[in-house]
Design a protein around this nucleic acid. Structure first.
Lengths: 230, 230
DNA sequence: CCAAAAGTGTTCCACCTACACCCATGG
DNA sequence: CCATGGGTGTAGGTGGAACACTTTTGG
């Protein structure tokens, strides 16, 4: 294969966070270098020679934002010749979720700034990052229906209403609270912790946790998480 | 970004074909060069400087096998540091389907040979191509349930029993023919051509075609193709 | 007339859907 | 006692699952 090739390989991450009763947010960094200097962008960067793609994502997130990720999967690879104005760069994008207690940003070397942006207040983004973000949003919405992924956006212990709000705000649809709860509980993958939320106003709520092991065991037996309505 | 990086970017394709009443097959090439010379592998190769990833896949398939693809989508990107013994190579893998009337192989330059292999007679494969193939097989199986993708493995006009056999052989499960037909027909995306199959033995069958435009129109209105049983 | 494949309806049950009121707490 | 959010049951409808015989052709 005597082909001359000078293509760079980068990873980019779309990281979502959700805080109780607030909006869905995305983690962005303000670029400190050209091209697109001072424009907001997805965290990411070139893959180092000896690291895997996942390691590259985690390293970049660490360097640029200090945020530790709770769920990570590959999203899609973008490789059109002109997506980066300098060299040709292939971006392998990842999809990440962060629990509220891991929200804190500790920006470091690469990025001038890192910041959470509510999903409906996203600024203009560098490169084709808007496209990547849109794809991630679609993925998130569809995964909520057929994978118990919402729990990676909540803390270990949560009141049921948090789960309701998460589904309604991300999917932008109303749900029937009774049916939703009945369905979720029928799976047997959510259990009471025994604790109660300390009431702000209104009746205090039981706290629940997602039983990962139970879910894995069921999944192995052909169980399929699925929420059609919403 | 003063990072030194020397990573090559390749594409690989898992191309499936299905011939009426036979097994599912995969298109492989026998490598003509080191490493893994003379070992079977997925068609693919390095991406050229000025072409998109999809163009690279189509070009490589053309060069190595002469097969024209009917459906193509990105599968996954593999990038572990040691997957190629020479340099580091990132492989962006694609998932392809070919209708029976496009089966003919016309091997050309790169590959010593190209050949269709029944899915249960796959030889040892180069690199991590076995992993890629397994992933593609999983994707194919799951897509049959929620996307009308089986039609890209059949000719434009087909007897209903071809669709039945396709589902049963690929999913390795029996189906209830009555329920299957009832469900498929209820979608309104399959129509009679008016022709009949010329009978080999047994009663001649009506021929059907998949109405792509109807499907797209319905899909835009929120219609969701779904076959749960099988 | 026999073999081979195509074609076709009904009943039962599970699950989805729609729907509204009482409860526990804090102020 | 009022405001706020938490918690719960039932009836009707839809769609999935199970099931077997008749029809049309070729040999």
């Amino acid at each position: 294969m005597g082909v001359i090739q000078d293509i760079k390989v980068a990873v980019d991450a779309v990281v979502f966070g959700y805080e109780s009763k607030k909006n869905l947010s995305v983690l962005l960094i303000r670029r400190g270098v050209e091209p697109f200097k001072d424009t907001w962008a997805l965290p990411g960067g070139l893959v180092l020679e000896e690291e895997s793609l996942e390691e590259a994502v985690e390293r970049e997130l660490q360097e640029e934002t200090g945020v530790k990720i709770d769920y990570l999967e590959q999203l899609y690879s973008f490789g059109k010749p002109k997506r980066d104005p300098r060299n040709r760069v292939i971006s392998i994008s990842y999809f990440g979720l962060v629990k509220p207690n891991h929200f804190k940003i500790e920006a470091a070397t690469d990025a001038a700034e890192a910041q959470w942006f509510p999903i409906n207040e996203i600024p203009e983004l560098a490169f084709d990052h808007k496209t990547i973000l849109d794809l991630a949003k679609t993925r998130l919405k569809s995964k909520l229906h057929y994978q118990p992924i919402g729990f990676d956006l909540l803390n270990k212990s949560f009141p049921f209403s948090d789960l309701e709000h998460l589904y309604t705000t991300i999917l932008e649809k109303d749900i029937d609270r009774r049916n939703f709860r009945k369905k979720l509980m029928s799976f047997g993958i959510i259990e009471e912790t025994g604790e109660m939320s300390q009431a702000g106003s209104g009746r205090p709520a039981k706290l629940f946790r997602f039983n990962t092991n139970k879910y894995k065991a069921l999944a192995k037996d052909g169980f399929h998480f699925e929420i059609k309505f919403v």
